[in-house]
């Protein structure tokens, strides 16, 4: 009974957050967190539940972002229209890709997603006349305040997590997990594995695309290296999933919170701690270390993943019982 209340309490806290904390910086971080809940949940569906690991989530994220951006740029309509087609644009990319590439299994499929990511990044860079290439696309944000964006992101996060929850407890959910566990066995049980892999990919592409178009609207600026970024989007999506817990409903939520916090921690040099140390001691080596740490967030990600895989192979949500036992010494009744 108590367990069922946790998500509701979390939701209440999230809904009240911008009313209590009016600081722009923290609101910004929370919007990023909510956006990553959406992307993480999407990745978790295709990779965590269906077992088709994607290294190319940025392909869908970027498609959504560019769909929104190009629409606003070329047709001068409000970028909010882009929100509606962002998800659909990602679907349009995902559908032919999945149709062809789901003939591949395991690592070969993962490599194909990586290729899709790179093809789109280079494609948008080269097609300057249409996408403005490396100049990027800039649109005027509709709202000055961050609060509306916050609630849109919250709404998307809630609906995406709920839809994962709903889907996973029904026929498609069972079929996704069956495909992950053994594709040949799944076929013999009457599962059209190609169709259900496409369905799972469609879910992932749609939500990742929606997150992309939200990003365009919120940040106001995109270029190919930002939205089709391999490590800042594709790998980050994987980390959100792995850290939180692959194949768990709330794993991506926990993972998104931790990853956004870790990313920000590195980016800001542990919230200015190292900069402060360097200034007070005046030491060149501390200054150099601070410099490396602020630029080396990818290194931090790598260390975190190694740690999580070693200690909590099922992620924080997946290994929650283990954490309770080891850290809090609470023994749940078996």
């Amino acid at each position: 009974m108590k367990k069922r209340l946790y998500p509701l309490i979390l939701l209440a806290v999230l809904a009240g957050f911008p009313l209590v904390v009016e600081d722009n910086y923290y609101q910004h971080l929370m919007i990023l967190f909510l956006m990553w809940v959406v992307i993480g949940s999407a990745w978790n569906m295709i990779a965590g539940y269906t077992g088709q690991v994607s290294f190319g989530d940025a392909a869908f994220f970027g498609s959504g972002a560019y769909a929104a951006g190009l629409l606003a740029h070329h047709l001068h309509v409000s970028a909010w229209w882009g929100m509606a087609i962002g998800g659909l644009a990602a679907l349009a990319v995902g559908f032919p890709f999945g149709w062809i590439c789901f003939r591949l299994r395991g690592a070969y499929f993962a490599l194909a997603t990586l290729a899709l990511n790179e093809v789109l990044r280079h494609g948008t860079t080269i097609a300057e006349s249409f996408t403005r290439g490396m100049l990027g696309i800039m649109i005027m944000p509709t709202f000055v305040s961050k609060v509306p964006y916050y609630y849109i992101a919250l709404g998307m996060a809630v609906v995406s997590v709920l839809s994962v929850r709903l889907l996973i407890r029904s026929k498609p959910g069972y079929y996704f997990v069956s495909i992950r566990e053994d594709q040949d066995a799944a076929e013999s049980l009457g599962i059209d594995t190609h169709f259900y892999k496409m369905l799972s990919l469609a879910f992932a592409a749609f939500w990742t695309g929606m997150a992309g178009s939200l990003y365009m609207n919120y940040m106001g600026f995109i270029d190919p290296h930002v939205v089709f970024s391999l490590h800042d989007i594709s790998i980050m999506a994987i980390l959100v999933g792995i850290v939180g817990g692959v194949g768990t409903v709330y794993g991506p939520t926990v993972g998104a919170f931790i990853m956004v916090a870790v990313q920000e921690m590195f980016r800001s040099g542990f919230f200015g701690l190292f900069k402060f140390l360097a200034e007070t001691t005046g030491s060149e080596s501390v200054r150099a270390l601070a410099d490396v740490l602020t630029k080396g967030h990818v290194l931090g990600f790598g260390l975190l993943v190694v740690l999580v895989i070693l200690v909590l192979p099922n992620g924080i949500v997946g290994d929650w019982d283990k954490i309770k036992k080891k850290v809090f010494r609470i023994h749940s009744p078996a």
Binding site: V177, S178, E181, D182, A185, L189, G190, I191
Partner: peptide, 25 residues
């Protein structure tokens, strides 16, 4: 229906969930 000589259980699912997945056909 068929069974496999080299068994193919859906490992990380319970026995009941294995059979439920089949029943959905």
């Amino acid at each position: 229906g068929r069974t496999f000589q080299v068994v193919k259980p859906l490992g990380r699912m319970s026995v009941l969930d294995n059979v439920i997945a089949a029943a959905f056909s």
